[in-house]
Computed example of a mutant assay.
Amino acid sequence: MDAKHRGSLTTDKRVSRAKGIDRVTLTYDKDNMMCYFYLEKGSKLEMHTHVQSQSGIVIKGHIHFIKGDGQILDLHAGDAYYFASNDPHGSNILEDTELIECFAPSRDDYKD
């Protein structure tokens, strides 16, 4: 198996993705990647796209994902979401929030 495993959340170094948005890359191979995100209340991620499809689940907190067409996904703990390849999206963090996200294929920029 060609996957990389990154240890537990408590020992992994967080990497800043943007102001108030930290990431821990948990595991990946060339086809799939799983990351844990820590998002501070009031932080934002600007509208962006990437070739990878993205699925995730809110572990705790409250987040608004904004889609390219203006639709807002109002998500709380236990809610899951999906963005297709090149589907524009951004976010506003309404409470301290934690997410688990999966990307397919893996993101080279998240391979620490």
Rank of each mutant, 00 (worst) to 15 (best):
M1T: 13
A3T: 12
A3Q: 13
K4Q: 14
K4V: 15
H5N: 14
H5S: 14
R6Y: 15
G7E: 14
L9G: 00
T10C: 05
K13H: 12
R14D: 06
V15A: 11
R17T: 11
A18D: 08
G20V: 10
I21Y: 00
V24S: 05
V24C: 03
T25W: 01
L26N: 08
L26W: 10
T27L: 12
Y28D: 15
Y28L: 12
D31P: 09
D31L: 15
M34Y: 06
F37N: 01
F37G: 00
Y38D: 13
E40C: 00
K41C: 03
G42W: 01
G42R: 01
L45P: 04
E46L: 01
M47R: 07
V51M: 12
V51K: 12
Q52L: 05
S53T: 10
S53N: 11
S53V: 15
Q54M: 00
S55D: 10
S55Y: 09
I57E: 03
V58K: 02
I59S: 00
G61F: 00
H62R: 00
I63W: 00
I63H: 06
H64N: 15
F65C: 09
F65S: 11
I66S: 10
G68K: 07
G70E: 13
Q71K: 15
I72D: 07
I72S: 10
L73M: 13
D74I: 14
A77M: 02
G78K: 01
G78V: 07
G78P: 03
D79C: 04
Y81I: 01
Y82R: 08
Y82G: 02
F83K: 02
A84V: 06
S85F: 04
S85P: 09
D87R: 09
P88D: 01
H89T: 06
H89M: 04
H89Q: 01
H89C: 03
H89K: 04
G90K: 08
S91C: 06
N92V: 12
N92H: 13
L94P: 05
L94N: 01
D96G: 04
T97L: 01
E98P: 06
E98H: 00
I100G: 00
E101I: 02
E101V: 05
F103V: 05
F103P: 05
F103Q: 05
A104C: 11
A104K: 14
P105K: 08
Y110P: 02
Y110Q: 08
K111P: 10
D112Y: 14
D112C: 09
